[in-house]
Each structure stands twice: as C-alpha cells, then as structure tokens.
Design a protein around this nucleic acid. Structure first.
Length: 613
RNA sequence: GCGCCAGUAGCUCAGUUGGAUAGAGCGGCAGCCUUCUAAGCUGUUGGUCGGGGGUUCGAGUCCCUCCUGGCGCGCCA
C-alpha cells in the first residue's frame, strides 16, 4: 500500500507508489519487486486542491479581448461576402503608433472579394461595430492593415477586473477539469540530480502549473527506472568502495562503475550502519542501502528546488503486479510480434520506427525483457488511470524512445490515440563558470549537481535560467551571471519591479486591499508608458493560454522580463505618491494590477515575488 | 548513411504560428542619485535572419536543397 508523505506546500497529501523502507526485494533476475498495488489513482481527486477552475479573463467592462475583436471583424467580413473558411488575424502591433489592435483581414479578403486591399479595408471599417469592441476609431495603414485605436479609459477598464480576480487573474478553464499526467525528472537512483535534471524539473513543474492555470487537473509524476543493469552496477560500485575502505584493495572496480565521490560516501555510511557486514559481502543489503541513500538525496535536491510530485512510480512495481507479463501477452496476441534469433521482437516499424525492437532477449543474452516493455506497460497504466492526456518531459537524448513507446501502445489496439503520450524534449545544458565549460559526466563523477547550483546562485535564479529559453535550444547556464545580484541578472530585474510596486504602497501607507478601482476615473492614464503597461497586463491571460497550449514556459519568462521593463520605465518617469488626487488614485490602481499580474507570472514559474529586496 | 533539434547583433537569446522599419539583455560608447528602492533609468553603437532556390500581395517564419553544430540510431537504460 502506498505511503502517504506530506506535501511541503501543505496542500493535502501526495501518494507515492513505492514502499518507504524495506519495499525493495531482490529477485533473482535482477529486477525488484515492491508492494505497489493498483491504487495510484486513489488521491487523484485531491490533486487539484490548489488549482481550481478559473473563469479567466473576465472582459466585463474591460477592454475587449482579441477574441471579441476577431469575432466582430469576422462578422463584418461575412456581411461583405467573405468565404466560409475566413478567419481574421488580430494582433497587438509592436509599434504603439499603430494603435491597440491591428488586423490584416482586408489584405486577405482582397482577392476573394475581387477588390483592392485598401478598398476592402474601407468597406470593412464601415461594417465593423467599433463600439462593440471598445474601440474609439480605426484607420487604414500601409498596404491595407486596419489599425484600431482604443482610448485611455476603455483601455484601462481591464485594471479593476485584474484587481478583482487577484491571484486568479490569468486562469482559464479550457482544460475543463480533465486529468493530465506530467512526467518529468524520472532520474535513475544511481546518483545525485545533475543540471539536466534541473532543467527538466523547472520545465516540467512550470508546464504542470501552466496546465493547472488552464483548467487541467494536473498530476506530477516521477518514474523510477530502478530495474536493469544500472542498479546492479551501482551496487557493485558501492561494494568495491566499501571493500577498499575496509582495506581490501584487490576487489575489482566494475568496468562501467560509478566513479563519483558520492559512491565513497555511500560506502562509508553503509559500513557505519552495517557493522556485521564488515567485509561488504552482502550485495543485496548494499544495493538497498545505496538506492535508499540516493533517493533521499534526490528528494532533498527536489525539495531545495521547490518541486513536489504527486506520484512516484517504480518501474520495479510493474513486474510485481504482473503488468509487464500482461503487456507482453497482449502484444503477442495482437499479432505484431515475431521471434528471431531466439529473441521476441515487436514490429515497431509498422508505426514508423526505423527498425523493429527486441522485447525479450534471447536465452544466451539472459532472457530478460528490454527496458521498453516496462515503458509500454507503464504508459498503459497512465491511460488506465484515467489520464486521457500524458506529457513526458525528457532530455533530447531520449527522443528515440518516442516512436517505440507510441508504437507499443498502438500495437496493443486498446484505443490509445496515436500521439499519446506527448513529449517535450529539451536540449542539453552547458554550464559555464569563469568563461570555461564545466564538464558534466555522471560516470566520471565530476559534474555539477542541481544542489550545487541552488547553493551557489539561489533557487529562483536557477529556476528562471532553466525556463527562460525554449526547450528546443541548447542552454548555456552562466553561473557567474546567475549569481550576480544586479541589473544584468534578469530574475532580479523582474523581482525588483514587483518589489518597487509594493514599495509604493508601503511608503505611501496605502492598504492595497482598499484600491479596487471603484469610482476611479482611469481615463487619466494617458501617458504612453502607462498605456503600454496596461496593454501588457491585459495580454497576460492570452499569453498564458498560448504558453500552455504550446507547452512553452519560456514565453512566460519573456513576458515577465518585458513587462518588468515597462514597470521600471513607468516608475522612473511617473510618480504615484504626491500626484494630484485623480492621478494618484488611477495610478494606484495600475500599480496594484501590475503587482498582482507580475506576482502571478512569477508564481507560474515557481518563483518568489518578494515585497522588498 | 538515417532520424530529431538548432543556426537571428561581438555574446546569450526572443520573434504572438505568414504581416508594417527584425526585437530584448549583456558587452562597447555617452549621460542620470535632495522626490515612491541607482538591485534602477535615458540615449547610442551594432544585422547578407547559415548559403542558394521556390511558394504569394508579403517569408526570420512555409516547401526543396546544400553547409555547420548538438543529440540519437544496441538483444544498454
């Protein structure tokens, strides 16, 4: 039965599907058995305790959202005879001189309507109900763009809406409370977490949060590859070090053993805690000790990083409950397998793999299942646990597994969609310090761990640096930059913007809770710097929705940095305290809305929003 | 050889899914502290968007083809 472990966030309990203490039982084949049952879904209903479904982007009385503008433009276009498939593109122009909204609709319509672009634009402008979308006017620009203007009062009507929604501003419910499982980190318990795992932890956690903000019922899952040769290798490595420490230098160190310093430390604690095995002969006990020690280490790393999982799933449990055997039987029955050279193969080429894959090794190779069989069995459990959507965050070095896991699921023919699971593959991380690359080699043991980074530059900086780039890009982690507490460091820049906004209320002795925007004339927010800031705040929900849909948290990081820049610029150029009453009151509303929105963005990335720095 | 990803300013990277004069940060140069945090702000410098074709009103973005780099291509996980 699963252990219940406290969730550090204090939001109920998480369930892990491994036993805490003596659950690992060595089986002759080299695999492990746990007491895992079939109750992974048991606490699923609690998983979203902190989430909830948002009614996001309440546009009532606020600036019209791009979706509303688009609907109106499409409606107007149809009155002119636009073709059925027509769908206007409405964007926020980069140059404020082009207004608050722009559409290319007239240029796209020109051909089907048989008119020149600018003529089509004139007709379209005549047909659009601008009042309905909160616009004060429109003009034709360039080759046929229609630029829509919104006056200050209408633009700023979004601010009271932001204040009213508070911590919920930016949430929406497109996920409709459907369950999704996000698997990430999934490190073998053979060493501390390295920087690659760190990127995955930051990325996976942010993706999970993004999905929660989109109304998905998200479950974070950690899969332990605790079977196979790697664990045996770990045990042998520790044994060799233990014997060495006991004075037995003749014992051979495994050829592919782990050379990290942590192996010596684990060997030392083993010897201290197992005085009856002074000769270090009990390989089974050594293995259990090593796995427990490394899992504890990884838990500490994750805790330091502020990442919490709802479920821990042990590969070994798949053998214990017969899932691997059942999966193999089902695949055999599907007719997609064959025997060759004494091994059992799956015809993965049917689903686009470049070669068929071995499921079960030949007798002379040990007769065991290859890793991908439990992988398929594991993903079947995701499906059977009710996760109609599954997202795997992995390093790009695992991309070859994508095709074969999906192929295995398709071969089973149990109704799992072809694109299941979805994969977010991230490129490798290069760590730079003092202008030189720090080599990462797990086997060599001379690599940078997640905890090294956190201790050196702080949790917030590590998390931000890991999500500020698109996962597809290789990431250079500049330790020297991350540890700087200055304007060169983007995470401090963003947090400083938030702290400054808080400072306005603190110094002015104004209780933010009293600033709601009720009865305040927001039409006085006419300065370009504040108009730009208002627009950035208004775009927050759409930006979040886009980031969630694309599974790209770096968009949030980019938005935060851009918006922080707008805050700093506005703060520097315009004062709040000491201004005439109408200006003061309106700017306090802007300051509170900006503070709330920045804090929400920081929260999505798992970053703190300090009130003073 | 095959597959996936990337190539944008001196460096690190964005670029709203095909739109207007390609943007930030850092670096360089020149300025701003009796006013809500100078951990900040302002100005400036800097580009054959890897090369070449193509698609169309319009391409950093889509297609083809080369070049370069990373990661994979096992009866390892």
């Amino acid at each position: 039965m699963p252990d219940e472990i406290p969730n550090p966030k204090g939001e109920g309990v998480a369930t892990r599907i491994i036993s805490g203490g003596a659950g690992l039982v060595f089986k002759g084949s080299g695999f492990y058995l746990t007491d895992y049952g079939r109750n992974a879904h048991r606490t699923q209903g609690d998983a979203k305790a902190a989430g909830g479904e948002g009614k996001g982007g309440d546009a009532k009385g606020g600036e019209a959202k791009s979706g509303d503008s688009k609907d109106e433009i499409n409606r107007a276009a149809r009155t002119l005879g636009a073709p059925d498939g027509f769908n206007a593109v409405v964007t926020r122009p980069s140059d404020p001189a082009f207004g608050e909204w722009a559409t290319n609709a007239a240029m796209v319509l020109a051909r089907p309507l048989g008119r020149k672009p600018r003529e089509a634009a004139e007709a379209l402008i005549a047909a659009i109900d601008f009042a309905a979308i909160g616009a004060s006017g429109a003009e034709i620009a360039g080759p046929g763009f229609i630029n829509v203007r919104v006056d200050a009062g209408a633009l700023a009507r979004v601010l009271p809406s932001i204040v009213a929604q508070g911590e919920r501003y930016g949430r929406h419910d497109s996920g409709a409370d459907r369950p999704v499982v996000v698997e990430f980190v999934s490190a073998n318990p053979t060493g501390p977490l390295h920087v690659g795992h760190g990127r995955q932890a930051a990325l996976g956690d942010a993706i999970s949060t993004l999905l929660e903000w989109s109304g998905w019922r998200t479950s974070r899952e950690f899969y332990y590859n605790d079977g196979g040769g790697q664990i045996a290798n770990l045990a042998l490595s520790v044994q060799a070090r233990a014997k060495e420490q006991g004075g037995d230098d003749a014992f051979p160190f495994p050829v592919n053993g782990y050379h990290g310093e942590y192996i010596r430390e684990i060997a030392a604690t083993y010897r201290a805690q197992h005085p009856h095995d002074a000769a270090a002969d009990d390989l089974d006990a050594i293995r259990r000790h090593a796995v427990a020690a490394l899992r504890a280490e990884q838990d500490l790393d994750l805790r330091a990083f502020g990442v919490t999982f709802d479920t821990y799933y042990l590969e070994s449990s798949l053998y214990g409950d017969g899932r691997v055997a059942r999966t193999v039987d089902a695949l055999r029955a599907s007719g997609h397998t064959y025997e060759k050279d004494g091994a059992l193969w799956l015809r993965t080429t049917t689903w686009g793999d470049d070669q068929d894959r071995v499921m079960k090794r030949s007798a002379e190779k040990g007769g065991e299942y290859t890793y991908f069989v439990p992988d398929v069995a594991y993903h079947v459990t995701k499906w059977e646990r009710g996760f109609g959507r599954a997202i795997n965050v992995q390093g790009s070095d695992h991309h070859s597994t994508v095709t074969r896991v999906r192929a295995g699921l398709q071969a089973l023919g149990i109704g799992i969609p072809e694109g299941y699971p979805e994969y977010v593959l991230h490129q490798m991380v290069t760590v730079m310090r003092g202008g030189e690359e720090v080599k990462i080699s797990k086997r060599a043991g001379s690599y940078v761990t997640v905890r090294d980074l956190i201790e050196e530059v702080g949790r917030d900086a590590v998390r931000y640096f890991f999500v500020m780039r698109k996962g597809d890009s290789q990431l250079v982690f500049d330790v020297d930059l991350a540890r700087k507490q200055s304007d060169e460091n983007p995470v401090y820049y963003i947090q400083m913007a938030h702290a400054r906004l808080c400072g306005i209320f603190r110094v002015g002795d104004v209780d933010p809770a009293t600033v709601t925007g009720d009865g305040v004339d927001l039409g006085v927010l006419v300065e370009p710097a504040e108009r730009e800031l208002v627009k950035a705040l208004a775009d927050f929900p759409a930006m979040l929705a886009g980031a969630a849909a694309a599974l790209e948290p770096h968009r949030v990081a980019t938005w935060l940095h851009d918006t922080a820049g707008l805050v700093h610029g506005w703060y520097h150029k315009h004062h709040v305290l000491g201004e005439p009453e109408p200006i003061l009151r309106a700017r306090l509303v802007l300051a509170r809305a900006a503070r709330t929105t920045l804090a929400n963005g920081l929260a999505v990335l798992g970053l703190s929003a300090p009130e003073r720095m």
